[in-house]
Design a protein around this nucleic acid. Structure first.
Lengths: 234, 234
DNA sequence: AGTAAAATGTGAGTCATATCACATTTTATT
DNA sequence: AATAAAATGTGATATGACTCACATTTTACT
């Protein structure tokens, strides 16, 4: 981790691209920008650890971050992937002394803006609209978490793999003539850790889908989904 | 389902026992009470179905409700159990036309108070404190959902069973001389559907725990946990 | 109280996935 | 460009939970 000055945001307001803040007046955004701390992390670095007690809001300015939990045997479960313009850690702003229940790990080199709880308390009081925006944000994530839980509870491994493909396609896919081009932000192993299967199983299931013509792989980082309906209908 | 008048709440303000509302002045609570709809459901009835598009806040006045998702094969995954004084459906107040992603089913005969989205919009505007309270509520549930997801991702069936016992103990257990008396609001099958295992596996694992002296069962509805530390340490 | 229905316990067998092992490919680093 | 490190693919095997079946117990209902 590397602390950098406010240079990033002076001319290029990071919070402007964050939906939680972007309905504010420019002057109000400037006020908030003054409270923001800036950090940079290299790929693979931890932004926070499960169990940490510091409460702050993380704004991803550039890059991607995964939120994960690790069980005793060290197995990772990815909960969410956060891209630039998105936030995380927001629910700890409303609970006192509750330790983080996840770790955040940089998937790429990232630039992060942070807001500490005390400042956020002030901001929420002064701009009640933001509360509502955050409620929308948390609500959406809640539905995501519950869908993930349902997916993980299935014994059907195929549908776990399909689920991850659908999730990634929705967030990182671009449609071209009924096909979806998916630029993967994560490795096969991480796809497995998101789906709740082993790396080997993920590898085998993707091969099978390619055999059937449902998907095509281009190297390791791109997947073309030929038949998204097949994945959805399953 | 059975619609009842406001009788329940005239003399006995249901929202008084709800943390989201109970810091308001009495007059304010009365104002809100006038907007409240009242319903009663028999055990087993659905309060809402996954896919429903009506958005309302449910307040459980008496009884217990489970929130579940069902996959295509009909397998149930219980997401949460809501007791009297608690609310659910709150995250749909902040999203437009988003269908429910769970079904709610009465575990006992229940009395429910409801607030429709339009009224809640007014209430949130007039009493901004409530937004903050709801944020706390949703944040807590978010952590619960993520913990559930992690639990379901484990291949270790023992730890899934332990997880459910710990969760239930925390909510429905009473401590007596280092032992925890747990009055179960759900059946073995539902415990299994919460843990993400089959009924048979749940049954066998509980028998094993009883063999080892970790727990004792008293009929089907009471479990005495002799060694909670064993479950926590695992 | 008596009967039907639901919930629970438990044995036997199957099978899909985790695990282990290792070759191969891709990516990162100097 | 060369080398090391990481990621990926794939075969063989084992294992443990799911499935099915049915006896038994508990609960609900008239």
């Amino acid at each position: 981790m590397h602390n950098v000055g406010c240079l990033n945001c002076k001319n290029n307001l990071c919070i402007r691209k964050v939906s939680v803040f972007n309905t504010l007046e420019y002057e109000d955004m400037l006020e908030i920008a003054r409270m923001i701390g800036h950090r940079e992390y290299k790929k693979g670095e931890f932004l926070c650890h499960e169990g940490d007690k510091t409460s702050m809001l993380f704004v991803v300015n550039s890059g991607k971050v995964k939120l994960s939990k690790f069980n005793i045997e060290g197995k990772e479960q990815i909960l969410n992937i956060i891209s630039d313009g998105e936030i995380f850690g927001e629910y700890y702003l409303f609970m006192d002394f509750e330790p983080y229940n996840f770790s955040a790990i940089a998937l790429t080199d990232v630039k992060i803006c942070t807001l500490v709880k005390q400042d956020m308390d002030y901001i929420l009081l002064k701009y009640p609209k933001i509360s509502h925006k955050i409620l929308q944000e948390v609500s959406k994530k809640m539905i995501g978490a519950e869908n993930l839980a349902q997916n993980l509870s299935t014994i059907n491994t195929d549908s776990k793999v399909h689920y991850v493909l659908k999730e990634l396609a929705q967030k990182y896919g671009t449609e071209h003539e009924k096909k979806i081009r998916l630029e993967l932000p994560i490795t096969r192993e991480e796809m497995a850790n998101y789906a709740g299967v082993t790396r080997e199983t993920m590898s085998r299931k993707l091969s099978a889908l390619e055999q059937e013509g449902i998907i095509e792989t281009v190297g390791n980082k791109i997947i073309i989904i030929n038949d998204i309906e097949y994945l959805e209908d399953y």
